[in-house]
Design a protein around this nucleic acid. Structure first.
Lengths: 271, 271
DNA sequence: ACTTTTGTGTAAGTCTGCCAACACACCGTG
DNA sequence: CACGGTGTGTTGGCAGACTTACACAAAAGT
């Protein structure tokens, strides 16, 4: 029995059909109007609830590196990503960093707000440029307090996020950089509508909490296996299935848990 | 401003005043009747709420290695530990294990039940023998659904647990076995009324997801620094402050977060 | 007392990932 | 076209932790 029966629209659709006119001049673009249903959490609401929520959210756009929350800082909004991907990053006193989780169109950024914490110990940073809907904390808390489906969804999502964080802990302990890179690529790929990940090795190394050279090496190995291609500043997935074979069990466990808790997986292939 | 003003009784009191009569014959013991207030989460409730909850819980005793939940298995009870310590352990397909969090008299085992998940991907196993109160899932869900302080407390605790899990992920990535052993010893020490941890190196190595020899080596280093003593099957904390100096920041971060979220730290010294 | 089980100490060899350093290639800019 | 900035590829040395293997000691059982 699946828990949620809500209609899920195809969330991922090319939002840009660009025609290059000139190297320096911008592109002719067609942008779909932002749709709340592109976020799965919102899409799982009943129509009447969604209408209510819609009146309290507004679209925002982010570019790579934008910071949504700083560690320990007061938060004014929660975010429901549509095309953006947000990384939850812990920053050590000595400046080293490690990702504890990632949120895309599958969820919400700012769970600690309805959990009663108001702040978190991690930074929320845009890992892949794109859009999201934001909602005022006050409105969120009010909606959450009403109980009902919205609350249930948020709690279930939080549970799924906990699973992801737990699995990150396990993966950090027991698996090689190469396996973790696979996991990371798949997590990103799931939340994107493209096979091209605009992402430098350096950035990834910060996420995984390893050195840049380690990523370069691991990426070369994956490229040698024809799973991805590397080029300056982008990595392209060319064999999705191959990646799923190379990845450690952590990826699958988390995905199945998302599926179980939220009624559908994030993965492009497993659901 | 502390969030909770509830009376916190001294939870840790010797429960056994044993007089050894004979090596094989049992001891004359005086056991305090189990008190719900020995669990901080319950102790933080208002008197009237606590009375209500008290009617729905019953004391249980556990020995080392008892399993409260198996990964993926249906759960019938949640547990509020008083003197027991429970480890949340992830078991890989190949049998390797890693701890993702630890719960003692500070919290509750089974958060996924009120989060809507019904199961978790980890095993809950007794890491240190002792007592707890258990509550039927149905009762828990009913109380949780009433909202109010009980719900708020449970959500805040869950948030604190998430911080602990996150920090475990970070610590696994960035810190040495020795530092992690310190963290683990302090986490256990905080939840015990004794300086003596009944615990083999092998068991600890399973928790930390490393080899037994690694623990032996790290324990020797700590012993050389006069922070602990080692003997067969037990480790004894002899310099608590020294451990707090040797430990990585992870310990402090988690403790401060518990303090902030729940109105008091778990640490014996920091709160 | 004797054996068995369990827990701890130790050691050589290997592997993974870290550190430091640098060459080079791509890209945008002037 | 030259230049500088940024991102990537490569190297050699090093350290921490894993693999394998074994000796020994303390507790438990007979």
């Amino acid at each position: 029995m699946t828990v949620f029966r809500g209609v899920f629209v195809i969330a991922h659709k090319k939002t840009f059909f660009g025609i290059m006119l000139n190297k320096r001049i911008s592109m002719r673009v067609t942008v779909n109007p932002p749709d709340a249903r592109n976020n799965y959490l919102l899409a799982a609401l009943h129509d009447d609830e969604l209408e209510l929520i819609k009146s309290k959210i507004e679209p925002v756009a982010f570019k790579l590196g934008d910071v949504l929350y700083e560690s320990g800082e007061r938060m004014d909004y929660v975010y429901f990503p549509t095309t953006a991907i947000i990384s939850l990053l812990y920053i050590m006193e000595n400046g080293m960093t490690a990702e504890i989780g990632v949120v895309g169109n599958d969820g919400i950024v700012g769970v600690s707000l309805f959990m009663g914490g108001d702040t978190t110990t991690s930074r929320a940073i845009i890992q892949s440029a794109g859009g999201a809907f934001r909602m005022k904390v006050k409105d969120l808390k009010a909606e959450f307090a009403r109980g009902g489906r919205f609350q249930e969804l948020l709690l279930r999502y939080t549970q799924a996020l906990m699973t992801q964080i737990s699995q990150t802990a396990v993966c950090n302990r027991l698996h090689s950089i190469e396996q973790q890179l696979c996991r990371w690529l798949l997590l990103s790929h799931d939340r994107l509508d493209s096979d091209k990940l605009v992402m430098t090795h350096d950035l990834i190394s910060n996420m995984l909490g390893v050195r840049r050279e380690g990523i370069t090496l691991a990426a070369q190995k994956l490229a040698a296996k024809k799973l991805i291609t590397n080029s300056r500043g982008t990595m392209t997935v060319i064999d999705r299935q191959g990646l799923e074979i190379a990845v450690c069990e952590c990826y699958k466990v988390v995905n199945e848990e998302y599926n179980r808790l939220l009624g559908r997986g994030i993965s492009r292939t497993f659901n």
